[in-house]
């Protein structure tokens, strides 16, 4: 019994971390349903343990993105000010909300994630069909990189930033106009950061979401940086990953100090999520992710249904039994 439960927790963590890395999701979106529906843990405990997994995977991948200069440390630090504040608020609000309310919010989050994954899978299919149709007329033109997601909302937590040069967004930075401006200093060599106040507001919202539901918040953060602030998708994804650590730790501190973390559950899950994320990222290019993504949409929808049932107080299926 003891060995089986420990192994189940570790394997669950491996699957959550592995699927997260394959599909560009943070482990949090999977760990919370696993622990609440699969192991019957209270939502807040599951969210707290999930945040531990999020911090671990974020720290390991952020180290790589920083070394490769894909993540923008200056921009990340600036936005962390708002995500961490949001996480502090979210961590406190989580204790004021009922388990059913939290389950309902999680169900909505799962449906939104399933929707972004479905759109991504469909856009990949369109891109592949378009490339195949144009292939005879293009001659030696290179095919579109399937690793580049067409939908920024889909390039969420834990995703490996798309390969290749970051797309140039916004006007090039002019040293004469940029000098002395804090916002200009946050940009990169070929992009400028726009609408920082709006981006900061969204970062605050991402922080609340992260602490409330035990997720990374990349599902809000990446589109906010890419679409609102004009940061290239590759940089947005990597910077969001970097920020996730601070965001999750602000929320996790509240949970740890309030005694919501069970070390006997957190240990195997954290080890599993880390092993799953690290090992899967090495073989991700061998897996047909489009088909996997479509299958996973079904899994997410089913989990959302279970969560919604719990939120509404209805009899729940085998996962929640």
């Amino acid at each position: 019994m003891q060995m089986e439960l420990t192994l189940l927790l570790a394997v669950g963590g491996i699957l959550a971390g592995g699927f997260g890395a394959l599909l560009g999701l943070g482990g949090g979106i999977l760990v919370v349903p696993l622990l609440t529906l699969g192991f019957g843990l209270p939502f807040r405990e599951a969210a707290a343990i999930s945040l531990m997994g999020v911090i671990t995977t974020s720290s390991s991948s952020a180290a790589v993105y920083l070394r490769r200069r894909t993540a923008n440390l200056r921009l990340g630090l600036t936005l962390e000010l708002f995500t961490a504040t949001g996480a502090l608020v979210g961590g406190l609000v989580a204790f004021a909300l009922s388990e059913r309310m939290l389950a309902g919010l999680m169900a909505a989050m799962l449906i939104y994630t399933a929707w972004t994954m479905l759109r991504r899978a469909l856009s990949e299919r369109r891109d592949a069909a378009g490339a195949a149709a144009q292939a005879p007329t293009r001659g030696a033109a290179p095919a579109a990189d399937p690793a580049v997601p067409a939908d920024p909302a889909a390039a969420v937590a834990g995703a490996d930033p798309p390969a290749g040069d970051p797309p140039t967004v916004g006007a090039p930075v002019s040293p004469s106009t940029a000098r002395g401006s804090y916002v200009a200093a946050l940009g990169g060599s070929d992009y400028v950061v726009r609408r920082l106040p709006f981006g900061a507001a969204l970062a605050f919202a991402a922080g609340i979401l992260s602490a409330l539901l035990g997720v990374g918040g990349g599902v809000v953060q990446v589109p906010a940086m890419n679409l609102v602030m004009g940061v290239p998708l590759r940089v947005s994804t990597a910077t969001s990953n970097l920020m996730m650590g601070v965001t999750a730790s602000a929320g996790a501190l509240v949970y740890v100090l309030r005694g919501q973390v069970d070390p006997y559950v957190a240990g195997p899950v954290v080890v599993g999520v880390f092993l799953g994320a690290v090992s899967t990222s090495r073989v991700a290019h061998l897996v047909p992710t489009r088909i996997l993504r479509l299958l996973f949409v079904v899994v997410l929808c089913y989990t959302a249904f279970e969560m919604a049932s719990r939120a509404l107080g209805l009899p729940i299926g085998p996962l929640g039994a």
């Binding site: 720290s59 730790s249 740890v256 070390p263």
Partner: peptide, 20 residues
């Protein structure tokens, strides 16, 4: 066991602060 697990979790939680 619990001591090792708690130290592991504390290191994880404090790691982003160390980076900052």
């Amino acid at each position: 066991a619990s001591a090792f697990l708690w130290v592991a979790l504390l290191v994880a939680v404090l790691l982003p602060s160390a980076r900052v």
